[in-house]
Write a protein that binds this DNA or RNA. Structure first.
Ligand SMILES: [Zn+2]
Ligand SMILES: [Zn+2]
Ligand SMILES: [Zn+2]
Ligand SMILES: [Zn+2]
Lengths: 133, 133
DNA sequence: ATGCCACACGTTATAGCATAACGCAATTGA
DNA sequence: TCAATTGCGTTATGCTATAACGTGTGGCAT
């Protein structure tokens, strides 16, 4: 799933997300890329779709926004459940991979004869920095 | 947080969700209630906001849709984490309350000095009925 | 009763998020 | 070369959610 090379639009969108300090909506990305020739939402959404497939961008469902992957290890779309801790104050997003959570959810699903395709775990709250202040 | 009595609008929205066989979007609810005098999205959103506060309706972030609570026990907004198993085929939603998941997430948050305000857990996939068929 | 407050409600308008549908251009691999 | 695939650009549209304003009602202290 990892791409050999990103297209120009994909690279621009990824770069925008990488330099951002908080999750960005597709339309915010669009605005930031107008100087680079972006004119329509689809240019952003199409890039985001691919980047998400590649596993280098994540969509945060509870925000309708996107972040560049900051996970220590690479992960494609099939490499397991990721939990996100999202600070409401500063926007910082931490990715958490935890086998215990994963196993437990798998167990709970199995018990119900439920076949899981995709799992979303998002914790909204306040990070250490913002709590200390 | 439990209300003494629901307002007319709240009761209508709740009833619509209770009779539905799958999560409904606010606009779908609006359409179903036009015959009862509903004309604008805000009538639905305001009712949904209250019902969600009361803990008798849940919002599914990954669907931008709402379900009536089917949980065996009542739960207000502060009564713990709920995981949802959502069938992509028939729309059936199962609510899962699991202390192990809850404890583990609390532990992971604590380790990162993260204070959690709200947690979203949603599994998308296929229920037993739909897998068997 | 009068004034005040809190709350639900109704309406209009607007903001924010996402995709459909069309056609063109570049790439790739027979 | 030809066909298939993929990305791209554009226009239009649809879906989701909230802002802002005003009305009406019920409770409650004065
Ligand atoms: Zn990641
Ligand atoms: Zn923070
Ligand atoms: Zn419930
Ligand atoms: Zn099903």
């Amino acid at each position: 799933m990892e791409p050999r090379k990103l297209t120009r639009n994909q690279a621009l969108v990824l770069e925008t997300l990488t330099h951002a300090e908080a999750p960005l909506s597709a339309y915010t990305i669009l605005d930031k890329l107008r100087d680079h020739g972006f004119r329509a939402p689809l240019q952003v959404y199409r890039a985001l779709e691919k980047l998400t497939e590649f596993g280098i961008v994540h969509r945060l469902e509870s925000l309708n926004a996107f972040v560049a992957c900051t996970h220590p290890h690479d992960h494609g779309p099939e490499k397991g459940v990721i939990a996100f801790a999202i600070c409401e104050d500063c926007g910082q997003v931490s990715e958490i991979s935890d086998p215990e959570i994963e196993d437990r959810l798998a167990h709970l699903a199995l018990k119900r004869h439920f076949t899981t395709e995709k799992t979303t775990i998002e914790m909204r709250g306040h990070c250490g920095n913002c709590t200390a202040a």
